[in-house]
Design a protein around this nucleic acid. Sequence first.
DNA 1: TGTCCGTTCT
Length: 761
Amino acid sequence: MLIQSKLLRLRRIHRLLPSTFSSLRRCHSDSPSPSRKDHELTVTQVVEHLQNPPNHWDYDTLRPFLFESSHYLLLITLRLNSIPKALDFINYLRGRTEHHQALSCVFEGALELATQHPNSQKELLMLHSYRKSNGDNIALTSRSAVLLLKCLGEAQMVDDSLLLFKELNSSSKSCGLCNELLKGLFKSGRIDDALHVLDEMLERDSNFPPDDFTGEVVFGVLGKQEHHGRRFADKEVVGLVTKLCEHGVFPDAFKLTQMITKMCRHRKNGVAWEVLHAVMRLGGAVAVKAASCNALLAGLGRERDTQRMNKLMAEMEEMGIKPSVVTFGILVNHLCKARRIDEALEVFDKLRGKGEGNNRFDVEPDVVLFNTLIDGLCKVGREEHGLSLLEKMKTTKQSRPNAITYNCLIDGFCKAGNIGKARMLYSQMIEEGVQPSVVTLNTLVNGLCKHGKVHNAVEFFSEMKGKGLQGNAVTYTALISAFCGVNNIDKAMQYFDEMLTSGCSPDAIVYYSLINGLSIAGRMDDASVVVSRLKRAGFGLDVACYNVLINGFCKKKKLERVYEMLNEMEETGVKPDIVTYNTLVSYLGKIGDFATASKVMKRMMKEGLQPSVVTYGAIIHAYCLKENVDEAMKIFEEMCSKSKVPPNTVIYSILIDALCKNSNVERAVSLMDDMKTKGVRPNTTTYNAIFKGVRDKKMLQKAFELMDRMIEDACSPDYITMEILTEWFNAVGEIEKLKCFVEGYPVSSSYASSPTSNCML
DNA sequence: TGTCCGTTCT
């Protein structure tokens, strides 16, 4: 750029009188024509004359020049080669001539000299101030205007720029000048002023229509991640792009992509859509490449807008915009996230030419595409298929498996409970020289934690730390949650401190997990301390976190803290959700405050939140606690017949428990049957409740039958189950059956004649 | 311009 403008300037001066300008002589070997030679002499004479102090200057000697071509004056000024001298010249002329054009030319010369000065910006600004305070009658040439605007723009002297622009008449305005002004205006965040200038440029009969540089400036601003000043309105963006394109000024592929990406990031898919389509409509496949379409496709994918994704794909095909491997990456990812994995595999096969027609897209799958598919397969529990793709990758040259490939598979096998295979894959990646990342670490730590192997997780983490791999907030979240889960709060706190001292930067989630753990453990004072630390770290609480705290304070019967939380939510604009209301209703029900509970529910409905199964559960539970099982059953019947929320396991469990306590075991048993027909799976709590009932009524055969059903339901007995059954079965001499049951064998007489032998299998 | 890990109440 700089070189280019210098060259332009030189060429301009060159055109005037090349051979007279010593610095140019070297690059201009033509011998000067005789007429030029004449002028050279006179110019040289004047320059020599002006070397005298100004009070010795003779106006008569100079006068002929003032009225000859203004180019000579510019040349003379340049040859003075001194800004103070040029200013002397201007001052001299200002007092003597009516010929304003002469002044303008000498001033232009002074500006040119300033641009060549080592400290050009300062010199130019000095000339600007000079003109502001002394030179009302120095009209600017268009060249002078450009030079001044450029320097004012760089100095962010926007108001001066605008004044200067206004003072120019239409004929001295040029596209280059407007571009300089625009650059300065955008740089200072003066969006409105810039749009005003653009309006002038984009007028139908504009004398200075936009050029490519205008486009570079405007599209650059529209694509920047952040800019000062106000944001552009959606309409302004679309209008600007459209109008520029109508003038034949198109964004390059990079800038268009950048613009679209930015709009999509700001959840403005609609604007991005219009912008891309404006460029497509006016510029076609020449102006729009796959990358820009991909940016929009990715945005649409994030919003799950399948319809418009399809439409855009069709348009690309129609216009001859060739999709790239990234296009397919986005498509496949979208299908995977929608759990439409088989369709994703179909797309994958198509581009590799396995489907009908050969490789009609001429696209080779890359690592990202493979990884996307493998992850998609793992997420729906098809890890084995994922493994086969891993093997396929190893046979290709351009898409060797990387850490992400292994991370997806390791996570898949962890989630499926196959920790052994996950660890094997880890060893395999090391063997193959694929460097594990912090995500690999986190995936394994989390997998181990989630399967009750917290100790192994800690061990693995230490091993990785030994290899120089630091954990991040995700690692610590997994460990903190795991230790809270086994009620080892001290260890959780210890890891939280380690995280802070190890220089790892925590995020909101890691705070949430600790607050959650502390609240469940009933350590509300500690939870409050972590909340204030979270706030000090610049984070805020989300609804889920408020819900956790409200629940914790409810359990501790600290109602004033509950209200404090609710007020804070209102102040910070965090809207209570159904969980918040359920927590409150549940608490009020438990303390028997039905009046307030019903008020809360009314408020909930007013906020547009419909009661959920948990809301019903809370009320049913409350009636059961009041030993009003009839009312509880009435609500239950209502749920079954009228409401849109069918009862779930928890609700059945509550009622079965209450009925048994009320000695209505028959009704409880019939509810168990009801669950079976309705397909609601009982859990251990349900069985524990009914076991207590049948034990109290000494219904031994029923107990055997239920034990078999419990095994069928893949529901394992816990220590409460054992407490209920052990003493009873001992007393009636059936302890062997209990042993079989614990090991997962059927016990009722309809199954095995010899339970003992069964147990030995 | 597309791929992987953590918190979420009743």
